[in-house]
């Protein structure tokens, strides 16, 4: 026991102040919410599309160029071939409506939306999540697990991953929903008591990302884009979901 205490003193207190105070420690090359210039032409969008790994992530219509964060895997290739698009350091990516994931040209003043649903706001002090991994590469699961470590410690905000859907307020879905996981996902979602929410985390869960998308059991109450979402993005999203931020 004494050895453990001495080691603890050596290592020190490591839990970050984020997200209540301070900014997360993001890498210098972090690719967050994209910004597209107003004057991006259709030809430039075509040029970017040619190097985009995901079909339909970039588009151009009468409103100008658009990038769908629900499909984007944040590889940053488009920003390399065209300087009209930039990936900013904005990590607060999660939104409550699917349409808000689409970044439009000239859309520079981004403020993350606030939670207004009273049923979600009631979960401010205790928010129990059941994770369902449905296909996918396990990247999203690994970065969701990280939130339980003492560096992020989501338990401070009453957020926990629980073992059973019966105990859950929300189902935290990752992966594109493979054919073999469809039934298990539907049953798990059905087993959660009302009122329940579906949180789609990662490009796969939102649109299938690189893969074919299965059938979502419900309309997600929150979308957390990324491939995988950075833990800072996820923690901020979960805190914002319950109205803590």
């Amino acid at each position: 026991m004494f050895k453990a205490l001495i080691e603890r003193l050596k290592q020190g207190f490591k839990t970050g102040k984020f997200p209540m105070r301070g900014e997360p420690n993001l890498p210098p090359d972090f690719r967050g919410r994209p910004e597209i210039d107003d004057d991006t032409s259709g030809d430039e969008v075509e040029k970017m599309k040619a190097v985009c790994p995901v079909k339909g992530a970039l588009s151009f219509d009468f409103e100008g160029a658009k990038l769908d964060m629900g499909k984007c895997i944040f590889c940053g290739r488009c920003a390399e071939v065209c300087d009209k698009i930039r990936f900013t350091k904005e990590y607060r990516l999660a939104v409550f409506n699917r349409a808000d994931l689409v970044v439009k040209a000239g859309d520079h003043d981004y403020v993350p939306p606030k939670q207004t649903n009273p049923q979600a706001l009631a979960l401010k002090h205790t928010f129990q999540l059941r994770e369902v991994s449905a296909g996918g590469c396990a990247g999203c699961e690994l970065d969701a697990n990280v939130l339980g470590t003492l560096a992020w410690d989501m338990g401070r905000f009453g957020i926990r991953f629980v073992a059973s859907p019966r105990h859950a307020d929300a189902i935290y879905l990752t992966g594109p929903i493979s054919k073999n996981m469809q039934l298990a996902l539907d049953k798990t979602y059905a087993a959660a008591p009302e009122p329940k929410f579906l949180i789609a985390a990662g490009a796969c869960a939102i649109t299938g990302g690189l893969y074919k998308h299965g059938h979502l059991p419900d309309t997600p109450a929150m979308f957390i884009p990324g491939c995988p979402p950075h833990p800072a993005t996820t923690l901020e999203a979960l805190c914002r979901f319950t109205g803590r931020l």
């Binding site: 369902v132 991994s133 697990n145 996981m181």
Partner: peptide, 9 residues
């Protein structure tokens, strides 16, 4: 296939 932890199926 759905496990108790945050792991794959």
């Amino acid at each position: 296939p759905v496990h108790a932890g945050v792991i794959e199926p």
